[in-house]
Design a protein around this nucleic acid. Structure first.
Lengths: 236, 236
DNA sequence: CGGAAAATTTAACACAGGTTAATGCGCCGC
DNA sequence: GCGGCGCATTAACCTGTGTTAAATTTTCCG
């Protein structure tokens, strides 16, 4: 059996394949996989579709922590073993592996190539999150949204889903707001502004086409090359 | 030789000890270890003192991404190999190991116990960062600062440096502002408010004593128990 | 096709927190 | 003991974004 990690597929040992067969799942859009505070001692490996991870404040305000895309590994463990700190749900229909923690540990132990791939993806995750924290803490609304769009573009590009800066994101503007810490209303204002300034165009819902990449990078506060090389789940 | 990871010390093989001897450093406060964009292919293991990791926007606004405390491992790698995405500097005098990436990989490969300890610390890191992103995106100033104080308290407690909610942090209010995405002026306003409300007391610079833990947890939007168990680098 | 529900857009108003600047305070070096 | 400097505090004013609500457009589904 093959498993997708990052942009590559990995063959597994026969024994591991047998064990993992049972952990394949196909879930409809909207499925909730875990809630903050749940016990959940597994790792999720997305093969197709998007998941979101999110947390909420007591007043109900929601913050999306990350999107989990095809090839990504989500390990929701905290320092407190099986208790998870975030909620996980399916933004689109997804296919994924749900791999029990001990099995995952075995897999990492037995397969150096997988271990290296996972290390690489984690480095990409940390870099991505650092960029996002910077803009959440210090960027204004335009900076945050511009960066989010560029992040989608780069990550989808690595999946071959963003031919020349045009790509689809399965999100509402409310999702984007919850991701960058803004109200949905303000997201609308900012995106309208980008359209009027000729920086992006949209079809339909959120089929986005970046018409002025340099302007968007400038607003986001990053150079196009830097972005791709730091953040992208696959080497160069 | 022994090395501190999390709250425990680990003995290394003789060969590894010999190799690591050369990587011990003792650096004065203010030393800069790496800058955004540098090439830096090593992992840093702090034995004593605090490091900060930070990033800046083009307009100069600074955001602290994390504090690296004794026993913590900092791996600044991005998806792009040796190019780092953040700046690292010494907030206090620090003693640390600077371990070249390939050596670090060998260490993880050869020593399962170290690997498990590192996994555990990373899970703690991810949980901590998720909590912080939530408050950066959706919390107001009081929530963010209350949470930061609690985070310090819990992390220092795990190091035995926070006897009954009183602890020292080697930071200015400007540091705190850069950490939680607020101006130094507003940090002052909020902290004064906490003092007047009888929630915390301070000596000197930033020797903090949490006098009303429940109130602070309530403002931060977290239960005291949850906080400790998720975030803390050492098991329960 | 039609009607309801969801998502977006726009406008008006409110306020949390930024900015600037002035003041105070403690510490250090000489 | 004195001057200087970094840090904290306080006040006055301003602005970016939230909130609410209403109008419009799109999507969904029978």
């Amino acid at each position: 059996m093959k498993i997708r990690l990052g942009a590559s597929n990995y063959s597994l040992s026969h024994a591991m394949s047998q064990t993992l067969k049972d952990s394949i799942r196909l879930l409809p859009r909207g499925t909730s996989l875990a809630h903050e505070g749940d016990q959940f001692a597994s790792v999720i490996i997305v093969q197709d579709g998007w998941l979101s991870t999110e947390k909420s404040l007591e007043n109900g305000a929601r913050q999306l922590i990350d999107f989990v895309m095809p090839g990504d590994v989500l390990d929701p463990a905290t320092a407190n073993g099986p208790t998870v700190a975030l909620s996980v749900s399916a933004i689109t229909r997804v296919s994924l592996f749900i791999v029990p923690a001990d099995l995952w540990r075995d897999l990492l132990t037995e397969n150096q190539r997988v271990r290296d791939a996972v290390e690489h993806m984690r480095a990409a995750y940390r870099a991505r999150v650092s960029e996002r924290i910077l803009r959440l803490g210090r960027g204004d609304a335009r900076t945050r949204i511009a960066f989010a769009l560029l992040e989608f573009c780069v990550r989808l590009d690595a999946l071959g889903q963003s031919p020349n800066q045009s790509f689809h994101i399965p999100l509402t503007q409310a999702h984007i707001g919850d991701f960058v810490g803004l109200s949905a209303v303000h997201v609308s204002r900012v995106i309208s502004g980008f359209k009027k300034a000729g920086i992006i165009e949209t079809d339909d819902h959120l089929d986005i086409y970046i018409t002025d990449l340099n302007a968007l990078c400038h607003i986001a506060g990053i150079q196009a090359e830097t972005l791709a090389s730091e953040i992208r789940p696959v080497g160069t």
